[in-house]
Write a protein that binds this DNA or RNA. Structure first.
Lengths: 231, 231
DNA sequence: TGGCCTTTGTGAAATTGTGCACATGCGACG
DNA sequence: CGTCGCATGTGCACAATTTCACAAAGGCCA
């Protein structure tokens, strides 16, 4: 029984959830077989990449035919550790924390929100998506009682490091950080950062390039017909 | 006047906003000079990488001294197109859309929310962070009137492609997609996808690995002292 | 059963990103 | 005005990731 299969490249790990999402949809459409080509199209990537990615899980395709959707779903689930639920705890009941608590997409995909805590007494006690906001001091209790290993930091930037420290102290080993700051955590704790403003800034860069490219073109050929070239 | 400086690698573009964030903080602390080493530490990356990244902008450091914070801020801003504001429009006033509209972090960093629209008449007219939710049919008007080029898709998955199509038709050329689906857009339109569940699934993978590793260890050495090795 | 068609799985090449190591240039100080 | 020390900028090797190209293998039909 191959226990620790060869390590899966990080880039592949980031794509497996996308494949899984698509395969789930296909399963709902009663499609039970899919080729690397088809999956690639739906995922917006190259077919060879799909095959290589899936090959890290093992040889689960059938040559000349493709992959059996149900079985592939099962295998990806297992590899990602999604064959059981992961309770998560949210720190910070501000705008974002509230939205996350109310966001159905989490529970649907196996990440039940076990609790949401906030330091602000005004927010404590209010209800959010079927949950009561608990005081920050309950964090340890919640983590221990519900076996939480994933924490979400949805605090203002200035409080994010404290939140992370408390999560780690409570025993959390994975943190999803929405605050625009770098978190320092001990070795053995995984952090992923999602910074909404960064995403917009990357888009801005591309917009800016478009603008620059357009003006460079004008520079090169100042006498364009009105209503000329559009990209 | 070097117009289109050599293209900046995508990986670097993704880090520039992080540097910018840190540099802004340093500026607020009245620190006006920083070394690649110092910046690297704060950004959680390697110093050589910082230098290489910054070198794509030009030679803006001083050997033996470091980088002037203010000037660097100015240069990164310019390169990312952040020397002016970018109005954005949000499609979908559900949980996430509401949170985004109310999230101060956007406006603060130059991305003013020019409007938020929803297809649901019940939501239209309600107020969110100083904005009135407009009907979906106003999308074109808003985009045109405010010169919006960035759109945010915060709809349920099933409506996301329609939302994207409408945004593109209205003239938007960059889309930030929060729905867990692949968007098809014409060439020349940039899409970035942020999928919160995917982030959690990646964390789940690492958690699962930890669990597997621990059980493998037990397998290998079944007779551990109670309270034995902790990672 | 045998040949044909299709699609996987995977070496190998190409591309992209990272990190080291050090020559170079700049400011400080005497 | 020269020397010293420090931090940048970059060539280079290496690591990771993507893509190509094709042999191997399953299924289908005659």
């Amino acid at each position: 029984m191959a226990r620790t299969r060869r390590r899966i490249p990080e880039a592949t790990v980031a794509r497996l959830p996308v494949y899984l999402q698509i395969l789930d949809e296909q399963a709902n459409l009663a499609i039970d077989n899919i080729s690397s080509e088809g999956l690639a199209e739906l995922a917006g990537v190259n077919a060879a990449k799909v095959r290589k990615d899936l090959s890290y899980l093992g040889s689960y395709g059938t040559r000349g035919v493709g992959y059996e959707v149900g079985y592939l779903v099962y295998q990806i689930r297992r590899e990602l550790g999604l064959d059981h639920d992961w309770p998560v705890v949210i720190v910070g009941a501000g705008n974002l924390g509230q939205a996350l608590a109310g966001y159905g997409g989490f529970g649907e995909r196996g990440f039940r929100v076990a609790g949401i805590v906030d330091i602000d007494d005004v927010k404590v006690g209010s209800e959010l998506g079927g949950l009561i906001v608990a005081p920050l001091s309950d964090l340890g209790k919640i983590v221990a009682a519900r076996g939480v290993s994933i924490g979400v930091v949805a605090t203002p930037p200035s409080a994010a490091q404290d939140a992370a420290d408390l999560l780690v102290a409570a025993g959390v080993t994975s943190v999803l950080n929405f605050a625009p700051v770098m978190l320092n955590v001990p070795l053995g704790v995984t952090v992923r950062k999602v910074d909404l403003a960064v995403e917009l800034q990357i888009l801005s860069y591309h917009e800016q390039r478009r603008v620059n490219a357009a003006s460079a073109q004008l520079q090169a050929a100042p006498l364009v017909r009105r209503g000329g070239a559009s990209a």
